[in-house]
């Protein structure tokens, strides 16, 4: 919610109330205030279709309010009548009468000349992986496999460090052009790509995935991704053509090490 807009609308209404406005001004003020709140009072803007719906309801409410009381009708009708009949309002009246059709014409014009919009599609960033993949004649079960070298972290820190060093080399030799030097998805080529390279710093990416999932994405890249979730035009290469299985597991270790994220554990199924 956009607090300032709402507060502003309320304060304006309160200030107005103190000055005891005529019914017409009061109703118009309410309409404007409600419009401001509905249209600009939300941090995420409310779609036009809903704004129209709400404003229609508010208009109906205001009309019902005015028409329920003789005095209010009088207060609303009098200025309108005066505007339409008195001589001193002749010019503004003429302007209004011209403005109304002009407004319609403008809204039609605006509607007709609007830029065409691409249809929206939803893309699944992390599609469901296949059961198992074959990398270098070796079958890896994505559902259950774990990084074969993850255990070294506890049992043999030295060997683990060596693997991390290898992972670092692999990353900066191959990945960083797109995924960036701090893994924020801002490599030098990143801006030419759509969809943009994944930022591993984002807690919504590798922190939510298991290492085998990363292994699958690295080994197989964009080609042959499952079709669900709309078209996919990622430029990620299938790294199995360039790297050994070991190197790919090492770079996965390095990704987690560098970003400080932990991989998601294999879920226990009973």
């Amino acid at each position: 919610m956009n607090t300032w807009v709402i507060l502003g609308a309320i304060v304006a209404l309160v200030l107005m109330r103190l000055r005891k406005p005529s019914m017409l001004t009061w109703a118009a003020a309410w309409w404007v205030a409600m419009f401001a709140i509905v249209r600009y009072g939300f941090t995420v803007p409310v779609p036009i279709s809903v704004v129209k719906l709400y404003m229609g309801l508010i208009t109906a409410g205001l009309v019902a309010y005015v028409l329920t009381d003789e005095e209010r009708i009088e207060q609303v009708c009098q200025p309108v009548l005066a505007f339409m009949t008195q001589k001193r309002f002749q010019l503004p009246l003429l302007a209004t009468m011209l403005a109304i059709p002009a407004l319609f014409a403008w809204s039609i014009y605006a509607g007709m000349t609007r830029d065409p919009q691409a249809p929206a599609f939803a893309r699944t960033v992390h599609p469901a992986p296949p059961d198992e993949i074959t990398v270098h004649d070796n079958t890896v079960s994505i559902g259950t496999a774990d990084n074969p070298y993850r255990a070294l972290e506890e049992t043999d820190p030295e060997a683990f460090g060596a693997r991390l060093a290898n992972g670092r080399e692999v990353y900066y030799a191959n990945c960083f052009y797109c995924h960036g030097d701090i893994m924020a998805g801002e490599g030098m080529y990143a801006h030419a790509l759509n969809p943009i390279p994944t930022s591993f710093q984002d807690p919504g990416t590798i922190a939510m995935l298991r290492e085998a999932f990363l292994f699958w994405r690295i080994a197989k890249g964009a080609p042959g991704l499952p079709e669900e979730g709309g078209p996919w035009a990622s430029a990620m290469p299938a790294w199995e053509s360039f790297l050994t299985e070991e190197e790919m597991w090492n770079v996965v270790l390095f990704l987690y090490e560098f970003t400080g994220h932990r991989p998601r554990a294999v879920e226990e199924h009973h």
Binding site: M1, F42, V44, P45, V46, P47, I48, S49, V50, L53, Y54, L57, Q117, A118, P119, A120
Partner: peptide, 29 residues
């Protein structure tokens, strides 16, 4: 109450609006 009742779950919206909302339902509405 009328307004609450008439608020649709998936809102008719343009592409930009859908992007801004991050889906076809509004985070608050």
């Amino acid at each position: 109450c009328f307004a609450v009742w008439a608020t649709p779950r998936s809102i008719i919206a343009s592409t930009e609006e859908i992007q801004a909302m991050g889906g076809s339902s509004h985070p608050i509405l």
